[in-house]
């Protein structure tokens, strides 16, 4: 079937983009390059959301992550004036690389083994959920979670303002 082949090819392409971007995000010496790798990964995940027939999530991914979170990270990089020859660029011991690799691979290996040992029945063509339905759910069944996330965002914003606030001397 033609559509299946196209889906498989696109999945392989997006997985490659995610892997390459993730490796750049984790290993790049320069933090700005690491951020560009993160952007690449985010676009790859947005492509996977499109393949899963959830276009709304793909747009939200690009809007929230690439539009807001990455800009915040860029602010953090620029405001900390990370020196080019700082700690990040110094060579590291091979033992450290081994331990870090172990820390990353051990949980993933356990979860991956569990995943491969228990194959669940999987749909081949996911159904799209109407946007109207999502909005209705957000305002009826899941209204508590919706309100709580707005409270969390407000508190995070207030906390950020409070932390960045410098008190004048004598007050």
């Amino acid at each position: 079937m033609n559509q299946t082949l196209a889906a498989q090819l696109l999945f392989a392409l997006y997985a490659l983009v995610i892997l390459a971007g993730g490796l750049a995000a984790v290993l790049a010496r320069n933090l700005v390059r690491a951020m560009v790798g993160l952007v690449m990964t985010l676009f790859g995940v947005a492509g996977l959301y499109l393949l899963l027939n959830t276009p709304f999530m793909a747009f939200m991914q690009i809007l929230i992550y690439v539009g807001a979170v990455v800009v915040l990270i860029f602010f953090a990089i620029m405001l900390t004036r990370s020196p080019a020859g700082g700690e990040e660029a110094k060579p590291r011991a091979g033992r450290q690389a081994l331990l870090a690799g172990l820390a990353g691979l051990a949980p993933a290996a356990v979860l991956g083994a569990a995943l491969l040992a228990n194959p669940l029945a999987s749909a081949t063509r996911p159904a799209e959920v109407e946007l109207k339905l999502l909005g209705a759910h957000l305002l009826t069944s899941y209204v508590l979670a919706f309100e709580l996330i707005s409270v969390v965002l407000f508190i995070a914003m207030a906390g950020a303002v409070l932390l960045g606030f410098t008190r004048r001397k004598g007050q």
């Binding site: 995610i18 993730g22 995000a25 984790v26 933090l31 990270i73 690799g101």
Partner: peptide
């Protein structure tokens, strides 16, 4: 899972706070 493994690796590997945030 690949994203999880990369993130955990980066969290241990990175030495700057912003790099850890990216992970």
């Amino acid at each position: 899972l690949a994203l999880l493994a990369l993130g955990l690796f980066g969290l241990v590997w990175r030495r700057s706070l912003v790099g850890m945030l990216i992970s």
